[in-house]
Structures are given as C-alpha cells and as structure tokens.
Design a protein around this nucleic acid. Sequence first.
DNA 1: CTTGATCCTCCAGTCACTGGAGGATGTAGG
DNA 2: CCTACATCCTCCAGTGACTGGAGGATCAAG
Lengths: 132, 132
Amino acid sequence: MSKMLMIGDLAAATGTKVNTIRFYEEIGLMRRAARTQSGRRTYGAGDLERLRFIRHARKLGFETQEIRSLLALSDDPERPCDEVTQIAVRHLDDVNEKIARLALLRDELEQIARSCAGGSVSECRIMDSLGA
Amino acid sequence: MSKMLMIGDLAAATGTKVNTIRFYEEIGLMRRAARTQSGRRTYGAGDLERLRFIRHARKLGFETQEIRSLLALSDDPERPCDEVTQIAVRHLDDVNEKIARLALLRDELEQIARSCAGGSVSECRIMDSLGA
DNA sequence: CTTGATCCTCCAGTCACTGGAGGATGTAGG
DNA sequence: CCTACATCCTCCAGTGACTGGAGGATCAAG
C-alpha cells in the first residue's frame, strides 16, 4: 500500500500549520482522518491534494463555503448532472471576474514598473485598475 | 465644489457596511475623513474610488498590509522611483501567479459544465487545477 | 531508558470584519 | 414648530478563519 502521511508531513508539504489542518477537519473541509492505535491522524495522497486545493483557493479569496461547494464537484462525481453544472457555472462567473480584475491590476503594475525606469511616477492609475 | 458624500452613500455605492468603512479608517486603509460641524464624516469622489479599490483587492485575496502597500503606490507618486518599482514588481509576481491559478480553475470549471451536458461527471479533475 | 521531536486536546488570542446598544443629528410631512 | 424616522456617532461584544501555547502522551534514535 502507498505511503502513510502524518499531519506534520501534510503541513510541511503545503506550508500549512498543523493546527490549521486540525481546524479544517473540525469545520469539515478536510475529511475526518483515520487514526493510528494511539490516536494520531493518518493521511494519504488524496488528502494532500485536497489540502493543497483548499490552501490555494483561500489565497485566491474564496470563502470556506465556496471551497466546500467546489470540493463537492470532485467529492461526488456521480451526482445529478444539472446540479453539478449549476455549481460550476456559478463559480465560473466569479472566477472570470477575478481574472479580469487581476489582469487590469497586472497591467497597471507593469506600467508603474516600466514608467518608473526614468524618473518618478507622476501618473499613477493603480486605483483605476480595480476601481471599476 | 463637487458633491459631498456621507458614509452611507459610500456604503451604498460599494456594497460595504457602514461599520466596515469606519473600521478601515481606524486601521488606516481609508484616510481620516473630514467631519461636519456635528461630527459626521464627509467624503469625496477620491474616497469612493479608494474604497472600491480596497474592496476589490480584498475579494482577490490581498491582505490589509498588501493593500496598504498597493495604495502607497498611488498615495505618494513623487516618492523615490526604485522604491515604487520594488513594490510594483513584488506584487506583479503574486498577481501573475493568481491569474495563472484562476485560469486553470476556469478551464476545469468549463470542462465540468461542458462534459456534464450528457450524463454525470465521472472524470473530475477540479482539484488538479489548484493542486499544483 | 532517556531525550527530543511530534502528536494529542483544549483554550485563549489575532485579524478582518459584523451587529447592536444607546444616544445625537438631519430632514420631510403635518 | 413639532414629530417621526432615517442616518449618523461611539463603544463594545460576537463571528469566521485561523494561530499559538499549555499540559500531557507517544514514538524513534542513540
């Protein structure tokens, strides 16, 4: 069988605090981990992947409930199709808007970095980039 | 002179809670607002733009300190150039990574929505999209 | 068999808000 | 002018998502 991971291994592999992983279990983002005889949590490769997903999603500004609903898409791939599509489409709009805003911000940051090459930034439109 | 805005106008225009705007002032994200005779905060168009920027940035997963440093780029456009460039470049990397991850997530959501057109989703790779 | 790293539970603290009490002010209708 | 009601003020307690630490058990190496 494949390698057993301890909670510290997950933490190290994802840059998450051990306490945070236990917290994710408590609020139901991570599955209740299997335990050893002495009560220590054990994980597999799937749990590692799941934790990475959660962490990245958080960094992208998704709330716990949104992550829950994204994870649902992969947790139960056999569920009714229209339900799944509905969740996916709802998130698609959100994701596309995030991408569009970030693209504007990126353009402005590039502009600042470039224009600054010779002199001081007198024309700063950074707020316009997310102000729309 | 241009239109004077009250805190409630800002709140309505940006979908922010009144209390949250006061909180932003407290932690120094919003400037200390000018007050009327009776002590009510008054704002101008610039404050509205600034608040919109803050709100969008939060939704994109930036922390208060990061927003502070982004706002600094437009707050003081005459400051030393290398300093500004440094801030901009540091954020550029972060922004580009966010965009890349969101693009992967979008592709996967599109795939789910499409493939679901006829049947149930048996091949769900949504976690791969943010798992890298 | 000791020592040090990791694990456990439980609980208090932080960050970024959110909501409400209690009271002053502003404005529109009678 | 007076009342009614929305909006403002300050202050403070509560929530969501962690973060850190106390106090104690377990495990792996020497």
